[in-house]
């Protein structure tokens, strides 16, 4: 097992996974602090990038890390890496926050299992394989296509925002998005 680097170099994926496992098994606060230093500022930046105000981004980054502490035992590195798992927690909290904003609040203890995973019989692609394929595929997209995919991820009105960010007419964007995602699909499936 790799020792977790204290400070200095950025921890790699396996080290981050290990930190979450230490939190789960040992309630290890030092591991939590390391994980926090890595992810909290990234979560804040990510949430800002998604259009939230700085104070809200900060608060949701905190809530996400608190959830990481509380739910660490549910983390399964075979299914998703640390960054992906933490991303999904932040995503769900952001959705809850946006609903809260509409002044209606009904706590939904099951909000995170909207999808029944139905493990049985799942053609289970190992996480490492999925992430590796995705990395290779993203590198094979043209810079413009990679930008389109990224912007589709961040923006609420992806078409108009992509249009203004890339200086393309709105009509063109729709087909470019479809082309970029089609290419990504071909690349992901081509590696099977």
């Amino acid at each position: 097992m790799t020792d977790v680097a204290l400070g200095g170099a950025m921890p790699n994926g396996e080290e981050l996974d290990r930190l979450i496992q230490l939190i789960a098994s040992e309630r290890d606060k030092q591991a939590f602090a390391l994980l926090y230093k890595h992810f909290a500022p990234r979560l804040k930046a990510f949430l800002l990038r998604q259009g939230l105000a700085a104070s809200v981004a900060e608060e949701l980054a905190q809530e996400t890390m608190l959830s990481v502490w509380r739910k660490a035992s549910y983390f399964d590195p075979q299914r998703a890496g640390a960054a992906t798992w933490i991303f999904t927690i932040a995503r769900n909290l952001r959705i809850d926050h946006l609903r809260r904003d509409r002044s209606v609040s009904t706590p939904d203890p099951e909000s995170e299992d909207t999808v029944d995973d139905g493990e049985t019989g799942e053609a289970f692609v190992l996480r490492a394989e999925r992430e590796e394929r995705l990395r290779t595929a993203m590198k094979s997209l043209s810079p413009e296509q990679a930008a389109i995919v990224r912007l589709s991820f961040f923006n609420d009105k992806p078409h108009s925002e992509i249009a203004s960010e890339l200086g393309l007419p709105l009509g063109t964007v729709k087909s470019r998005v479809r082309l970029a995602l089609g290419k990504l699909r071909t690349l992901l499936e081509g590696q099977l």
């Binding site: 992810f39 909290a40 500022p41 990234r42 979560l43 804040k44 930046a45 990510f46 800002l48 990038r49 981004a57 900060e58 980054a61 905190q62 998703a80 890496g81 640390a82 960054a83 992906t84 798992w85 933490i86 991303f87 999904t88 932040a90 995503r91 999808v115 995973d117 799942e122 053609a123 692609v125 996480r127 999925r130 992430e131 394929r133 995705l134 990395r135 993203m138 995919v149 990224r150 991820f153 961040f154 992901l188």
Partner: peptide
């Protein structure tokens, strides 16, 4: 579901790549 898992992994990698914003 597999496709959504791939896009979630994309979310994870975008989270890794973003320029950190100090808390």
């Amino acid at each position: 579901r597999a496709r959504v898992a791939t896009f979630e992994a994309m979310g994870g990698s975008l989270l890794e790549q973003v320029t950190p914003e100090p808390m």
